[in-house]
Write a protein that binds this DNA or RNA. Structure first.
Lengths: 193, 193
DNA sequence: CACAACTTTTGACCTACATCAAAAAATCAT
DNA sequence: ATGATTTTTTGATGTAGGTCAAAAGTTGTG
């Protein structure tokens, strides 16, 4: 099977930030591996250092950690986004985050060595990483603002807006831990209109 | 005046992430401009697109925005950190953030064109940006966790830990808006021990 | 040094949301 | 399907921390 079809979306994603030379396309395509995950499958375990980064072609992945024995959602990642355990992957150290698939998911997987090769030989890859992190950064700033100064209801509305493609695909309890509000409160909010 | 003395800290900062060639050192030193700000001085106004990035050698800078007529602190930046209006600077668009000096401050200033030149000619600068953003990213993740699941008291304790070099240099009202708690509540927390 | 302008503290009251508990509904496995 | 497990809803109650208001303390300035 040629790699051409399966790399469409990811190439488009790169080209939001940089121009892809045909050589870089080839090198990327050679290194990307398609991985499928079943619903509920654990993708990354916090007891290991994260060695892989996943570009989601289809599906929904949750990043979570354990606090007082309960799973707390850090965020959700969906189509056309990269997901990994960020600090673990970047700094190659342990971190608290687990990843699992909330739906049957298809991911393009790039491992650390291959990514390192690309960074070493294609400065535009470094640029891509820098610029795309800038985008994510902005989302984080918005989220922090939303956490600080909004009621539970506004938090939920903000969530539905930012995740409007996927919010209905996620169990209530995971949303409530993501927002930092009690599941009962979220249930009541949803009931009222 | 030669540039050598004044670039010590910033070079050290770069070298946490990359090796600086002597050529890059020279190019950096030629482009860096020392800027002083008086206490209270506005460094960046939200009505303009951010064109400069500041590395703080000495002093304390606040990033804030206006909500309902009140200044809300986004974060504080101190010695050996870069500060700018991130989305505005990276994407060259307007954003809501203002920067001002909470103390008399000395900054090494690098403007967008010069930084662009360095990114274009020194791939290791791209790498530096990517890696150092990774560090800041981790702090943001921690902060979001702290916002969601902690009492006001714990938030303040977490703040004192992460900002332990500077927390006593910051007016109470600015800390309370940073933490998203009422100034009166913070005052009571501080009183109790 | 005295008056003005902030900043912080203290007090009284109130509400949004957490917690605990149990019922209802949905999902899953045999 | 049908009982078991998981998820969501509903109800009752408690409290952390918000809001409003005023006093006390601090800092700056002519």
């Amino acid at each position: 099977m040629t790699n051409i079809e399966k790399t469409d979306e990811i190439f488009q994603h790169f080209e939001k930030y940089i121009k892809l030379s045909s050589l870089l396309r080839k090198e990327l395509a050679n290194r990307i591996v398609l991985k499928s995950f079943k619903k509920g499958e654990l993708i990354h375990n916090a007891d290991t250092i994260c060695k892989k980064s996943y570009f989601i072609q289809k599906g929904l992945i949750r990043t979570y950690f354990i606090k007082d024995g309960k799973e707390i959602t850090e965020y959700f990642s969906a189509e056309n986004e990269w997901v990994n355990s960020p600090r673990s992957f970047i700094q190659q150290q342990l971190d608290i985050y687990y990843l699992d698939a909330l739906e049957q998911s298809e991911c393009l997987c790039l491992n650390l060595q291959d990514l390192g090769f690309l960074f070493d030989h294609f400065p535009e890859m470094e640029r891509y990483a820098r610029l795309s992190m800038g985008t994510v950064f902005g989302h984080y700033m918005d989220r922090i603002t939303s956490m600080r100064f909004t009621t539970a209801k506004e938090k939920y509305q903000h969530f539905c807006e930012t995740y409007h493609e996927i919010y209905h695909r996620i169990p209530l309890g995971m949303v409530s831990s993501y927002l930092g509000i009690a599941q009962e409160t979220l249930s009541r909010i949803r009931a009222e209109k």
